[in-house]
Design a protein around this nucleic acid. Structure first.
Length: 423
RNA sequence: GGAGGAAUGGCAGAGUGGUCGAAUGCGGCAGUCUUGAAAACUGUUGAGGGUCACACCUCCGGGGGUUCGAAUCCCUCUUCCUCCGCCA
């Protein structure tokens, strides 16, 4: 959520920047400013009314104390009108403030200056590419065929017990999953991220805090009996750990990592792109989250990008990094780098990590602030990234490491797996 | 699930109708002393709205009510604690 004060002061530049998302924000912004003005004028009127009745109440108190009950009763009558007026104004204020809030929820984050304009993923900028694309033998298979051939992932079994998009990992497949999780967590811990185990269900406030609500209401599983949401990513519970906090500058940087399953309804997805592990309702992910001083957040973002690069280098997977264009940028993000692994057998790039700086957008909703050197409260910056999303890393490994003798396990994972080939 | 108790500033903890945005202690910050630090002493220190700046307004878990006036009384929700039951 953008700060209203920021909108008031930088109306023009915000509208210009939002054009990169291919949206015309002008109507939303003017509506917001109109409501803001209305809210403030009601507030001013209400304040004056309340000031008046506070004053009278004090006088009445004094009069009773000094035994002048009669005079007090005269004043009492005067307060009745004020009371009615302030009640009415209070209601107006609530309605207007609420409307303003709803309107603010609709405006996406302002893209960073480096974000290219664009409508879709076609306009994303490839900024880095590394790793050798292997030459596979004639009969190379996509991962869902490999999964069946070696009996390591069973999609049908998942359908039986839950439904499509809930695979069952078996034997070495399950072990490889666990190995990847442990390896990622270890790498993150090494880089100074504190490991957290967090709830997999969150309440409504948390959903609003990181911006999944109200924007992506339909994408989360909602447990209605208890009004809780299954997390679509660890970002939600981990970032919300500091909801409402007022930090000291010395608390920065705050660096967390966490492994969680992620649940996504993926309403509206279909076709070849959802085959196999490409798109699931439940998948595992290791996430990194940072809370930073605004002056350092872009340096932190670079560090996170470097960190993910290192992991992919160690796994020896061919990958590239994209700078997302305005049209592909998430609602809450100011700047996002996507990592994609090349899946040789499918001959396509698969997104495996998304590293973003949200600047103050989430912090504003979270009320996540710190005291600056002048003792003033300021909003912190929040960032997060996947390091990494399991299914597509797994897909990449299966497809790129397949040989006639079976699937080789990347060297760094062998100690975690306890075997070096799936055959 | 049943019965009681509680929720106050960064933390602990007073406050049961006006003089309370709130005692006191700890912590934080600044200063005195000191080569420096510690200790001691002195001062200072909640958040949000509003304003050029003041004024002013709001906030004592959330919401509602009583009253001229609510941290304080009433209703309701949430959370925590104690006891009982159940249980991995």
């Amino acid at each position: 959520m953008l700060q209203i004060q920021n909108i008031r002061e930088n109306q023009e530049s915000i509208i210009t920047a939002l054009k990169k998302r291919s949206i015309d924000a002008e109507p939303m912004i003017s509506k917001v400013l109109e409501l803001d003005e209305k809210r403030r004028s009601i507030q001013t009127e209400l304040d004056a009314t309340l000031a008046e009745s506070n004053k009278l109440s004090k006088e009445i108190g004094m009069l009773f104390k000094t035994g002048k009950a009669q005079e007090a009763n005269v004043l009492k009558e005067k307060t009745a009108g004020l009371k009615e007026a302030s009640k009415k104004l209070g209601e107006d204020l609530n309605t207007t403030a609420d409307e303003l809030q709803q309107q603010l929820y609709l405006i996406p984050n302002v893209p960073h200056e480096s974000v290219p304009a664009g409508n879709s993923e076609e306009d994303n900028e490839e900024i880095f590419k590394e790793g050798d694309i292997p030459t596979l033998s004639q009969g190379a298979l996509p991962h869902w065929e490999l999964a069946k051939k070696y009996d390591i992932i069973d999609f049908e079994l998942g359908v039986k017990i839950t439904g499509a998009g809930f695979p069952v990992y078996k034997g070495k497949g399950a072990r490889l999953q666990r190995a990847l999780i442990a390896y990622f967590l270890d790498k993150n811990a090494e880089a100074g991220y504190t490991e957290m185990q967090v709830p997999l269900m969150v309440n409504e406030d948390s959903g609003y805090g990181t911006g999944q609500l109200p924007d992506k209401e339909g994408q989360m599983y909602h447990v209605q009996a208890d009004d809780l949401y299954l997390i679509p990513t660890a970002e939600v519970p981990v970032t919300n750990l500091h909801r409402g906090d007022l930090l000291a500058e010395s608390d920065f940087p705050i660096k967390y990592t966490g492994y969680t399953p992620c649940f996504r309804r993926e309403a509206g997805s279909y076709g070849a792109h959802v085959r196999g592990l490409n798109r699931l309702h439940q998948f595992d992910k290791v996430e990194i989250v940072r809370m930073e001083h605004p002056n350092n957040s872009y340096q932190a973002l670079d560090e996170m990008v470097e960190h993910v690069k290192n992991i992919l280098r160690e796994l020896k997977l061919p990958y590239r990094i994209l700078r997302l264009c305005g049209g592909d940028l998430g609602f809450t993000s100011a700047l996002t780098f996507d990592f994609e692994v090349f899946s040789t057998a499918q001959d396509r790039w698969l997104e495996i990590s998304s590293v973003s700086n949200f600047e103050t957008f989430q912090a504003n909703r979270l009320k996540l602030r710190y005291k600056d050197e002048n003792g003033k409260s300021q909003l912190a910056h929040t960032l997060n990234g996947s390091s990494l999303a399991l299914p597509r890393v797994l897909a990449g490994i299966l497809e790129n490491y397949q040989t006639d003798e079976g699937i080789k396990i990347p060297d760094v994972l062998v100690p975690y797996c306890g075997f070096d080939t799936i055959d």
